[in-house]
């Protein structure tokens, strides 16, 4: 009896600090070390799908914590351990090559955050071999090729495939639009709006919403710039010119904390490069 009481008292004393210690562990430590996929494949025996799903959840929890750390209206300083997340997601699809969560999440972080477009596309190509009914994967690959890699021929091919698999004529029309480099911002907005609508996870939706917000601002600047050029017969010298002359009201705000500016050729850019933690110009 005395032992039980002593045990309970000791437990009550230690559980608070222990929980706090576990909660405050550095996030990188939480993402942790994962043994090689070969080892995981062997150890997980007939639970490979569960092991794959658990890796995706590890990444998701980490990402959720990362996004949750930034209070509304403040800027997140760190894009997180992108390499670690990528490693875990690649591991997940080797354990379960059908795991859509892994492809979906990898598409988000590998392109917009890590700028690893070829890696993202290789992963999508790998997924297409297994999920041969899923239009989402060629849809992602089409977007990556057109928007990031400017490979319009490949983009059209993937959009064609997405159109065939989904039966959606929209993707067929996107295929033809991607054949030419025009209206890039509008296409990004269309893509991101779709992603926001279909996102189920709060952290993922928040990330896409933020990006969409940034592209809506870019679109507003582009429209103001074009109107300026049409009416004044020349490009504005700077973004401040647009604001000062009343073409752009209110002044644009980069949700990533950067500052928008016009490149010498008139292209809209931002010092944040649409990512958290990018070097300021």
């Amino acid at each position: 009896m005395a032992l039980l009481v002593a045990g309970l008292l000791a437990y009550a004393a230690v559980i608070g600090p222990f929980t706090a210690y576990m909660r405050d562990k550095p996030m990188e430590e939480k993402l942790g070390y994962v043994p090689s996929v070969k080892v995981m494949k062997s150890v997980s025996v007939d639970q490979k799908e569960l092991a794959g799903a658990s890796l995706v959840f590890k990444v998701l929890m980490y990402y959720g914590t990362l996004m949750g750390q930034a209070p509304k209206g403040t800027i997140l300083k760190d894009p997180g351990d992108l390499q670690g997340m990528s490693r875990l997601l690649h591991g997940a699809v080797q354990l379960d090559p059908y795991n859509m969560d892994a492809y979906y999440f990898a598409q988000g972080i590998l392109t917009w955050d890590a700028h690893q477009y070829q890696v993202a596309n290789a992963l999508l190509d790998y997924g297409m071999k297994y999920r041969n009914w899923d239009w989402f994967l060629p849809f992602f690959a089409g977007f990556n090729n057109a928007y990031f890699l400017k490979d319009y021929k490949k983009a059209a091919h993937y959009y064609d495939l997405a159109g065939d698999l989904s039966g959606e004529p929209l993707y067929k029309s996107l295929a033809s639009r991607y054949m030419q480099e025009s209206g890039q911002t509008d296409l990004a907005i269309a893509y991101l709006s779709g992603m926001v609508k279909t996102a189920k996870n709060d952290a993922v939706r928040k990330s896409y919403q933020l990006r969409l917000q940034a592209f809506l601002e870019v679109s507003r600047i582009e429209k103001a710039r074009d109107r300026f050029a049409r009416e004044r017969g020349g490009m504005p010298a700077s973004l401040e010119d647009l604001v000062r002359s009343g073409y752009l009201k209110p002044a644009p705000v980069d949700p990533y904390g950067g500052t928008f500016y016009l490149e010498p050729d008139g292209k809209v850019a931002t010092t944040s490069k649409f990512a958290f933690g990018a070097k300021k110009k």
Partner: peptide, 21 residues
């Protein structure tokens, strides 16, 4: 329901894994 794009699939995974275990 924590899954982003495959809730039903994950429910089958968890169910079969539990039975298997």
């Amino acid at each position: 329901s924590l899954s982003m794009r495959q809730v039903t699939e994950l429910s089958v995974t968890l169910s079969l894994s539990l039975i298997s275990f």
